[in-house]
Amino acid sequence: MGKIVLVTGAARQLNGRFARHLRRDPGVDRVIAVDSAEPIHPLGDAEFVRADVRRPAIATVLAEHAVDTVVHLDIQDAPASAAGGGRAAVKEVNVLGTLQLLGACQRIPSLRRIIVKSSTRIYGGGGADPAVFDEDAPPALPAGGGFARDVAEIEEYVRGFARRRPDVAVTVLRFADVLGPLGESQLAGYFRLPVLPTLLGYDPRLQFVHEDDVLDVLSRAVVDPDRPGGLTAGTFNVAGDGVLMLSQAARRIGRVTLPLLPPLAPWVGSGLRAFGVAGISAEQFRSLVRGRVVRTDRLREAMGGPLEYTTAEAFADFAATHGPPVRPQAAVARAVERIEEVLRDG
């Protein structure tokens, strides 16, 4: 008998694509795709159930379908849409939603495996941090909260669940920034801006993971560990080989950069968003000041090799879809003036 897998966050395009992809695995009998909103994209043979991970009813869904594997992807750094609420709403879904889901999973005797999406942003990006992080590096807990704190709290809850249910294999996947043709991550929104705000004197190192590699790694985590390339329980960094400097990425996607003085950094994101210029939050901009690079030796050993796409290749595939033609000089000048006006008024 094949696996019965529940996937959260199915209304997001990449998560919905994973549900379709997973249903084609011969070792999977059923895929239950869950979200509080109706997906606008097809889910193939996956069965959609409208349910909110923040509500106790998620336990009923798990029990009714005799789920043995949970893939928790409903963890995001920004709302699914402009109408999705602010930072408080995102935190509620991320942290309280995960807590509710884990509480429900704890009471399901059929459960054998849980995979949780996390982020390399858990490591922070301070000036005293190591040049390269491995999975044993302690998480950063920024005083102001934000997505990095969300994933740190989520992972703490996951460790508590693993202690209470040692019979369940728990896999945590810390993804670098995801890029590809879909381009639905917050960082993708930044690179779609006509002019890229940067911080004067900083050229951070960046790592990316391609959307196709995300699907591959998640699938390997679902399959039995004794199958070739399957991922056992544990924590894994997931990023394409190599790095790109922010200046290199800007040139490759054909964007003009606007270096800002450090005192203006707190206004970037929140100030632009207040004036209707979307694409980056203040927290996301702070994460671009120094960037971060992670080791992926543990993942490479488990998979028997690197991911299909390097960091540069993942960015190139994103840029091929989302990189606009060269803009007229007048249009670029207007974009620069607009950003300067927003920051000046802020």
Rank of each mutant, 00 (worst) to 15 (best):
G269A: 11
V342D: 06
R113Q: 15
K91F: 10
I114N: 04
E156L: 14
G145I: 14
R163V: 11
T321Q: 04
R344Q: 10
H65M: 04
P325W: 09
L258T: 14
L179Y: 00
V209I: 07
Q329R: 15
D136W: 08
G229T: 11
A80H: 10
P79I: 11
P139Q: 12
A88H: 09
H322L: 01
R107P: 02
A128F: 07
D216Q: 11
A19E: 02
L187I: 01
V158N: 08
E308Y: 11
G271W: 14
T321P: 01
D35Q: 12
M303Q: 12
A335Q: 08
G242M: 06
A88N: 04
I4G: 02
E308A: 15
P56L: 06
I108F: 03
D25S: 12
F318K: 02
R227G: 04
R159W: 13
K3N: 01
S287Q: 07
A312V: 14
R220E: 06
V336N: 03
I280A: 15
G254F: 00
A37T: 15
P259Q: 07
A10R: 10
D212P: 05
R255K: 15
E153G: 09
G189M: 07
S185V: 01
I154H: 13
G127I: 12
N237V: 07
R327C: 00
G160M: 05
V332E: 05
A265V: 05
A46D: 06
R54E: 04
H21Y: 15
S118Y: 07
V293D: 02
M1V: 05
Q76M: 12
L244E: 00
V342W: 12
R334L: 08
V289K: 12
F133Y: 14
R251G: 07
A89K: 10
R174Y: 07
A33P: 05
G27P: 00
L261S: 06
D241A: 14
A148G: 15
A152S: 14
A319Y: 02
